[in-house]
Simulated assay, not measured.
Amino acid sequence: MASGDCVFCGAPVSSQGEHVLPRWLFARWAGQGPFTFFEGSEPIAKRNGKTERDQLARVMLPVCGVDSPSNCNGWLNDSFEVAGKPQVRAVLDACQSITGSAVVDFARWVTKTLLLHDHPLAVNSEIGHLNLPGRNALELPPPGLRGLRHTGQFPEDISVWMAVVDPNGALVTMPEFELAVLPDVHRPDGAGGKCGATTLGLSLPNDLMVTLQLISHPLIDIVHPFEASGQVTRLWPNPPAALDITALPVLDAAGGRALNKWFAVGGASIGLQAGERWPYNTLARYLQPRGGPVVRGAAEAAGA
């Protein structure tokens, strides 16, 4: 159950809410179990101690339906599922190349799904609420999902990438990078807020995986080092003109783990000046734990 207030409009939700991963997506894994679920790198055990399940974990989120004037569940379907479903099936099931508006529909579906998957109110059938201590739920700066419902536009400073991973493949030489710890960035005009990071892995044919990664980086001009080296493909913003999953570089298991951990949250609290943004290339200088020193002004910090 996902009772509570709708994450999009605030209306009461008394039904089961929204399946973050839709039923039509679950159908692609029918009869392919048993499945093992992980929290981080650790397998999640059932009460009997076993780690294998016959069914996939489901993630539910409080979203109002036809009994509400807003019917945000129907809006999600009309705005993302109808256009995205055939493109997700083409890319993930058939490994087909897509172009133009089909890539945009695919990218919008992925971005929407990642925004909902680790929402603080999401309930995972295996690990419960994501906003419990020790778990990193994805918190968006205001107006968050309510802004998406009102305008139909994703929040600013949301970036999404995808990568193909072969857990059993030969080792791939990865470029040397420095871990990025994302700070909390704030401005006097109220802009900014907490950064967030989330990844989702989905299976592909031939035992490959696709890793989808979303970073919320308010007021930060972020750069993904794996993108610069051609190891990941940006989906949002500015989706590519064409997407051919069979032509993408393939990471090995170590590369996939590195991708999942590359962006950490909980860095320094950064105070910016009016109209200012935080340049990404200064992040490595401020790998402070939450509650650390406040840095005044990106320009000042960059020259420190």
Rank of each mutant, 00 (worst) to 15 (best):
G49L: 03
A197F: 13
F35S: 02
L138I: 00
E176D: 14
G297F: 03
G271Y: 06
P62Y: 05
A163H: 10
W75V: 00
L272D: 06
V104W: 05
N281H: 14
R89G: 04
T282C: 12
P240G: 09
R58A: 09
H119A: 00
T51F: 04
Q16G: 08
L251T: 00
L148N: 05
A197E: 10
L121V: 00
D244W: 01
A2H: 06
P143W: 02
A180G: 01
V88N: 04
G33L: 03
M60Y: 12
A304E: 11
G17E: 11
V123N: 13
T151H: 10
L148D: 08
W29S: 13
A191C: 06
N136H: 14
S216Q: 14
D5G: 06
A90T: 00
E176P: 01
G292D: 10
L140G: 06
P34S: 02
L200Q: 12
P205T: 01
Q231D: 10
C72Y: 05
S3A: 11
D166S: 11
Y280E: 10
D78A: 15
G230Q: 11
F37Y: 12
R187M: 03
P218R: 12
N73Y: 02
E178W: 09
C9D: 00
L208V: 01
A254G: 07
W236K: 04
L204V: 00
G128S: 06
L140V: 00
P293Y: 06
L92A: 08
F8L: 14
A94W: 04
V181R: 15
S14I: 02
D67V: 02
L140M: 10
W278C: 11
E139Y: 12
A253E: 15
N131E: 09
C64R: 08
A94T: 03
T233A: 11
V20H: 09
T111C: 14
V91P: 08
G266N: 08
H19W: 03
R257Y: 07
P249T: 04
I220K: 13
P22R: 13
L235S: 05
R146P: 02
V172G: 01
P120C: 01
D207V: 03
A268P: 07
I98A: 07
S68V: 00
P240H: 07
P141R: 13
K50C: 00
R149Q: 12
E300H: 11
L212Q: 12
I270E: 05
S125H: 07
M174V: 03
Q273L: 12
L202N: 04
V210A: 15
I44H: 01
P225W: 10
L116N: 05
S269K: 12
L116F: 07
L219M: 13
P279L: 08
G297Y: 02
G17P: 06
P183W: 09
R135S: 00
T113A: 11
L114V: 04
E276S: 03
V103S: 10
N206D: 15
G255C: 05
D118L: 02
G17Y: 04
R23H: 11
I215D: 09
D221L: 13
